[in-house]
């Protein structure tokens, strides 16, 4: 089973700062990590390949430093890593990102399954997985928490819902996006880390991918950002501690003060 995993490098905090002039994320000075959901995507990809044989390839679109994320993916058991990097990719919205990733998947050619994370913790749109599927005209199941069967060009998965889960049978090749419930990502072994250090990371640019230039980067991004802002922080809750009677009284007083009772 050949699997392609899409991963995004993100800042290691959900408290991203936004440049008020350009409305883009300020990434300087924040440690970069693999988008946490994508670790589960990697793990699932590696497990499928270990179980059924085949190859796991990881791709990421990003600046040159996203190479670190790709090396980490190799340390976790992925066979090959490709970085999609080109000045012309800059300023991509989710549509352009999906298109570019889809071009790369096309170029890879042979595959049975593409795995994405549920969403990226910085952009947070959860659009890229389905976007790739649309571009490649492939079936897509989001929020997958379990792959229960792979057989005869089909796959049965469990899809997390708010009140339970759906069991879905899908055709392969296809795309899934995964949630944290799907597995426990492994720790990289020493050998994995050594391999990651020495591994060669392929770099593909817009012409390697034969991209239509008006579909990538800024020109390919119809989204207009009116304003990006961090939601106002909720003030910290208050924990009342101590004697149960005193605490109950305090709670009642507080609720009265707030006009709730």
């Amino acid at each position: 089973m050949d699997v392609i995993v899409c991963i995004k490098q993100v800042p290691a905090t959900t408290q991203v700062k936004i440049n008020p002039v350009t409305n883009t994320l300020i990434r300087e000075g924040v440690e970069s990590i693999i988008n946490p959901f994508d670790l589960y995507a990697i793990e699932e990809g590696v497990r499928l390949k270990e179980k059924f044989g085949g190859k796991a390839t990881v791709i990421s679109m990003g600046p040159p430093q996203a190479e670190a994320a790709l090396r980490e993916a190799i340390s976790l058991g992925v066979d090959e890593a490709i970085l999609l990097s080109d000045r012309n990719f800059g300023g991509s919205d989710t549509l352009a990102t999906s298109y570019t990733l889809a071009r790369a998947i096309k170029r890879i050619g042979e595959f049975d399954l593409v795995i994405c994370g549920k969403q990226a913790i910085d952009g947070d749109t959860a659009q890229v997985g389905p976007g790739i599927a649309e571009e490649l005209k492939l079936p897509c199941v989001t929020y997958v928490k379990k792959i229960s069967e792979v057989k005869d060009g089909k796959m049965v998965v469990e899809r997390m819902m708010e009140t339970g889960w759906q069991i879905v049978e899908m055709e392969l090749p296809g795309i899934i996006t995964v949630v944290k419930e799907i597995n426990e990502p492994r720790l990289p072994s020493l050998r994995g880390k050594m391999r990651a250090r020495k591994a060669e990371i392929l770099i593909w640019n817009a012409s390697d991918l034969a991209c239509e230039m008006d579909r990538i980067g800024q020109p390919g991004s119809p989204t207009v950002v009116k304003r990006i802002f961090a939601p106002p922080q909720k003030p910290a809750g208050k924990i009342l501690q101590g004697d149960i009677d005193a605490v109950s009284q305090e709670l009642a007083d507080e609720l009265k003060r707030l006009g709730i009772i």
Binding site: A12, I33, E72, L187, P188, S189, L190, M194
Partner: peptide
């Protein structure tokens, strides 16, 4: 890493994990 690699040559080792990143 050179130091950690020295450990690899000892016998009966099944697996070595290295924790250097925050998550690890």
């Amino acid at each position: 890493f050179e130091f950690v690699e020295k450990i690899e040559k000892f016998k009966n080792i099944k697996e070595i994990f290295v924790a250097e990143k925050k998550r690890e």
